[in-house]
């Protein structure tokens, strides 16, 4: 099969069972080349399972998936060459230096020694950690480790970068730095498939988002288009112990409606969390 005949990622009726637990239930979707695609859902919704199947870490129970035209099961070696993978858990060799971690990755992807060394310098400069090349990984902060993992995943120049909850556990300022880095990577032409349960992350970064709940794909679309299906403004009304949210096209409509309620209320812009709740009845976070 020739690469680029298909979308960057093509998932067809993908299912995954862990014993009796159905982690994925017939998910189908396509991610276009150069796109930043966010896969949004609460913990346990099947986001990581999807990434693990696409990167060869898990086998599907049913269905197929292609990355850059290569079947992830039948042509796994070629498929893996297309992918860079940054898992949710930090998985660097703590005892080795930053440089050594990257070098081993290059060897795993069969790159030439000279090329690996050039790429390491370039990528560490790219992520702003060139001065830490010789530092043992255990001496780095969580945010630095995350950036090293992104650099490692980019070392072999993958066409698609998989980021599984790239900013989980990081403080807001570091999170913003990682977002800027992700945007830069996309602008350099890499397709990015990102899982997150942070609404603002998906809204800020993604060209399109997919909602996943309990292993089922709920919807796929551009963030703004999904938001506009509800309206642009939300009115949160507190009624006793319950909170009700109403949606309006304009802020004025929302405010006009708000004054009719005796309890406390707030008017705010609609976000993807609202869309998710309206579709699934559950929260993302």
């Amino acid at each position: 099969m020739i690469a680029n005949e298909r979308p960057a990622i093509d998932i067809v009726e993908l299912s995954k069972n862990y014993g009796r637990i159905k982690a994925l239930k017939g998910v189908s979707l396509q991610v276009h080349s150069g796109e930043l695609f966010a896969y949004l859902g609460p913990n346990g919704s099947g986001k990581t399972t999807t990434i693990k199947i696409l990167t060869g870490l898990a086998r599907p129970s049913a269905g197929t998936a292609y990355v850059n035209g290569f079947n992830v099961e039948k042509d796994s070696i070629h498929a893996k060459r297309q992918c860079g993978y940054v898992p949710q858990a930090l998985n660097l060799d703590n005892e080795l230096t930053v440089e050594q971690n990257l070098y081993i990755h290059g060897r795993l992807f069969h790159l030439e020694k000279g090329y690996i060394k050039d790429r390491i310098i370039m990528l560490l400069d790219y992520i702003g950690l060139l001065d830490r090349a010789k530092s043992p990984v255990k001496e780095l902060s969580g945010g630095m480790k995350r950036r090293v993992m992104i650099a490692r995943a980019l070392l072999h120049e993958p066409k698609i970068l998989f980021l599984d909850e790239p900013t989980v556990g990081l403080d807001p300022s570091i999170r913003r730095k990682i977002w800027a880095l992700i945007k830069r990577i996309q602008m350099d032409g890499t397709t990015i498939f990102l899982t997150t349960h942070y609404i603002e992350e998906a809204e800020f970064l993604a060209d399109r988002v997919a909602f996943l709940a309990e292993g089922t794909l709920v919807t796929v679309g551009k963030p703004q288009e999904l938001i506009e299906t509800l309206g642009r403004w939300a009115l949160d009304i507190v009624e006793g112990e319950h909170m009700k949210t109403l949606y309006f096209k304009t802020q004025e409509e929302a405010k006009t409606q708000a004054i009719q309620y005796p309890g406390s209320f707030s008017v705010r812009p609609v976000n993807l969390e609202d869309v998710f709740i309206s579709m699934t009845g559950k929260k993302v976070q």
Binding site: L57, H78, Y85, P87, N91, L92, N94, H105, F109
Partner: peptide, 14 residues
Amino acid sequence: YWRVFEEFQAAPIR
């Protein structure tokens, strides 16, 4: 513990 094995699983090696 280190989860480095995932790095090997995701690499294009047999």
